[in-house]
């Protein structure tokens, strides 16, 4: 009961903080749409080509947006000492960080999901494919948040950790990227995508159950420095 209450209060606090600093919500969104805008400009406006590469573009943009957003997941809490209090609190740290990552996903990834249909239409994807794209993002982006949080937890005490974070986290994002974009690609050619969706769901289960332990261990290490 206490644990549930603590979980909810951390979740509520983080969402409230994010809503008071609106740019934390809008920056990933702007970044996501800007990156997707760059591809047609760089490659050319041919609708057929854009349709073929749309799944990859959407997923790569989502990946980069997640990476960018992950950087301020623990940063301000580390700087003002909130994180130390969280580590010292009697509640299990892995659960508390789950609440934090969940809040982070709600404010940074869910808006992205809402914008996706719009971008997908501009690339000429049809309605069923857009549905699949949304499903893969719904299953995949929490994995990105959880895995990214491990990297952030490891590097939060370092001064300039941007490049290092990318080096640590992007290789771990690869399986999600492969199955996510592959599912959209397969759906665009009218084939069933159950397999890819199941695999993404499996990764989600794995990330939700195991990543918090790694995040908690890494945070304890970072805070004790």
């Amino acid at each position: 009961m206490h644990i549930a209450k603590a979980f909810l209060s951390v979740l509520k606090r983080d969402v409230t903080v994010a809503f008071r600093h609106r740019n934390e919500i809008f920056n990933p969104l702007l970044f996501f749409s800007l990156v997707t805008l760059l591809f047609p400009l760089g490659i050319g406006p041919s609708p057929k080509l854009l349709q073929t590469i749309a799944p990859g573009i959407l997923w790569v943009a989502a990946l980069l947006a997640a990476l960018l957003a992950a950087d301020n997941l623990f940063r301000s809490d580390y700087e003002d000492g909130t994180l130390e209090q969280l580590v010292l609190s009697p509640q299990p740290l892995s659960l508390m960080v789950t609440a934090k990552v969940l809040a982070h996903w709600l404010v940074s990834a869910v808006p992205l999901l809402l914008l996706t249909p719009l971008l997908a239409v501009s690339f000429g994807l049809d309605a069923p494919t857009i549905g699949v794209a949304l499903l893969t993002l719904l299953l995949g982006t929490p994995v990105l948040s959880f895995v990214g949080a491990i990297g952030v937890a490891l590097t939060v005490s370092l001064k300039r950790s941007g490049m290092l974070l990318a080096l640590l986290v992007l290789p771990l994002y690869v399986p999600v990227l492969i199955f996510g974009s592959n599912a959209i690609d397969t759906a665009a050619s009218g084939l069933p995508v159950n397999g890819q969706l199941y695999l993404l769901a499996a990764m989600l289960v794995l990330a939700v159950t195991l990543a918090p332990l790694a995040i908690a261990a890494a945070l304890k290490m970072s805070v004790s420095q």
Partner: peptide
């Protein structure tokens, strides 16, 4: 990147397991 080598080792151990 991490100055204290014992801390760095713990960080690397977590990363390797991930």
């Amino acid at each position: 990147a991490i100055e204290d080598k014992r801390m760095a080792s713990r960080a690397v151990a977590i990363l390797a397991l991930v």
